[in-house]
């Protein structure tokens, strides 16, 4: 890419060295990007480069985007000294351990919920006709309409796969506060 084409786009970001070394005492003259080649304070039509037939002038924003895409600020691999590498390693290990511990705690919590759900369903399944838990292993009581009704209701999957109401997906945030709404507020 030719440098001269992109210069006007990046004029504000670059400053010459002499200007950078000067302290910020005097308000530096604002550097305007030269938007076109026209001279200031002139009413004469400027002589621009003659354009070929059908050639369109490229948008300067495209040029700027292309410049930034092709000059990636990829840093080179970090080289740490011995102590710094050790420090990094220690922090990294601690972070990994913390992550593993919290992940393990979360898994255990899920497992606990699942197990209690399973136990509740098992208790429902084993409930007798009279509403009392039957003897372990076999559903007790006489065979009636009510036998195992709660279990059957609990096992229904009607409407589950249709999705959850959209209000469920409300983002969990730190507000509204515990009070909710201040009804006594007046201007």
């Amino acid at each position: 890419m030719r440098t001269s084409a992109i210069i006007p786009a990046f004029r504000p970001t670059f400053r010459c060295l002499s200007r950078r070394t000067t302290p910020l005492l005097s308000p530096a003259r604002p550097i305007h990007p030269r938007s076109s080649q026209t001279a200031l304070f002139s009413t004469t039509a400027p002589l621009l480069k003659r354009s070929k037939k059908g050639e369109q002038k490229k948008d300067i924003r495209i040029t700027a985007i292309q410049y930034h895409l092709r000059h990636p600020l990829n840093p080179r691999p970090l080289r740490l000294s011995r102590l710094r590498a050790l420090r990094h390693w220690t922090i990294h290990r601690a972070w990994q351990l913390h992550k593993a511990a919290s992940r393990r705690a979360h898994e255990l919590e899920l497992e606990r919920q699942y197990n209690s759900m399973r136990d509740a369903c098992e208790a429902l399944r084993l409930i007798g006709d009279d509403g009392m838990p039957a003897s372990a292993g076999t559903p007790g009581g006489t065979m009636g309409k009510e036998l195992g009704r709660l279990y059957r209701v609990a096992m229904e999957k009607k409407g589950v796969w249709a999705g959850v109401p959209i209000e469920y997906a409300r983002m969990q945030v730190d507000y509204p506060s515990r009070e909710g709404w201040n009804h006594g507020w007046t201007r």
Binding site: Y114, R125, M171, Q172
Partner: peptide, 25 residues
């Protein structure tokens, strides 16, 4: 991210409960 936290604290247990199927021992 907020979404990750929401998933871990709420959505994941709820999905597990919704899709639960009971198998007797």
């Amino acid at each position: 991210p907020r979404l990750e936290q929401t998933y871990q604290s709420t959505i994941q247990p709820d999905l597990m409960t919704l899709a639960y199927t009971h198998f007797p021992p």
